[in-house]
């Protein structure tokens, strides 16, 4: 009987499903619109007179002879050397993720296995650090970094991003390691392993699901960061997000907004694939902290 009641269509259900459909449109439309429009000329992307131009590409046909044009991409990637920023982003993201996961697994494991009070206090401090607006930290870095002459280079930015990432990584991996039974590493230690050997031979083989989930969020933080990369990198070392921001200043003057549009779409595509392949891990990662309280 309960099943029958679940199947029945009620007004409540209709409204809630309608609401979900509305949300999906609002969530997806800006991306579809921008991705489609990035293959048009500026007159079509910003078609004040008739919005259907942006779909059919009337001016694009008139200007280039075809309904689709890659001029925006060509301008961004080749003329404005977007590829340089892509290489920089790859370097920054790769090292940030690797180093923060290394630091985070060691620290998270220690916090999960220590029953002492100071472990609790370190977690609390991490929570407070997590709340610090990044720009306040950056305003503390600038002067010393200029003085020591380490401003503008990639390694500085990588280590700063690693540090900013640590509070979150610690919390995630701490709650993940709590779920791995204590008996596993303790029995290894009874058999004569040191603490580090127990970690190396018993914990490392089983920790990958948690590490991958945490790694995804480290990736997102490093990839999406604007504040730190904008302030700490010199122009030739720029990553893609500050590069896009600098496009806005320069290209709008030259009437090349389409370069920025193409760059924005290029920056979104990797994230799209990320969500496609790791949707389950992202969802479980978002909820891991919540379920623990």
């Amino acid at each position: 009987m309960a099943i029958k009641a679940e199947k029945r269509i009620t007004p409540f259900k209709v409204i809630s499903v309608g609401f979900v459909i509305l949300w999906l449109v609002i969530a997806a439309f800006p991306f579809l619109w921008t991705a489609w429009g990035s293959f048009k000329v500026q007159g079509d992307f910003f078609s004040k007179a008739d919005w259907t131009n942006a779909i059919t590409g009337a001016l694009t046909i008139a200007e280039t002879g075809s309904a689709f044009t890659a001029n925006g991409y060509e301008g961004a990637w080749i003329q404005e050397e977007f590829w340089r920023s892509v290489i920089n982003t790859c370097i920054v993201v790769f090292f940030t993720v690797t180093i923060s996961l290394t630091f985070g697994t060691l620290g998270g494991y220690a916090l999960a296995r220590s029953g002492y009070k100071y472990a609790f206090w370190i977690l609390m401090a991490a929570l407070v650090f997590r709340a610090m607006p990044h720009i306040t930290l950056v305003s503390g870095y600038l002067l010393p970094f200029f003085e020591w002459n380490i401003w503008g280079i990639l390694p500085t930015t990588i280590i700063v991003l690693v540090a900013i990432n640590q509070p979150f990584t610690l919390w995630m991996l701490h709650s993940f390691f709590l779920n791995i039974p204590k008996d596993m590493d303790e029995s290894a230690m009874v058999d004569g392993c040191t603490r580090f050997q127990a970690f190396r031979y018993v914990i490392i083989p089983v920790m990958w699901p948690g590490v991958i989930t945490t790694g995804l969020f480290s990736f997102l933080l490093a990839y999406n960061d604007f504040t730190v990369t904008r302030m700490l990198l010199s122009q030739e070392n720029e990553t893609i997000i500050p590069k896009i921001a600098s496009f806005l200043g320069s290209t709008q003057v030259q009437g090349n907004v389409m370069f920025a549009v193409a760059a924005v779409v290029s920056a979104t595509v990797p994230l799209l694939f990320l969500v496609m392949f790791f949707q389950r891990q992202i969802v479980s990662g978002l909820t891991a902290g919540a379920v623990k309280g």
């Binding site: 630091f103 916090l111 472990a119 650090f129 306040t136 503390g140 280590i159 690693v162 509070p167 990584t169």
Partner: peptide, 22 residues
């Protein structure tokens, strides 16, 4: 052993989060 395990992450946080606040 807690000290050695927590050292890298703690020093990163102290150097680049706590110290900048100061």
């Amino acid at each position: 052993s807690f000290f050695w395990f927590i050292l890298p992450t703690l020093s990163a946080m102290l150097l680049f989060i706590a110290l900048p606040i100061v």
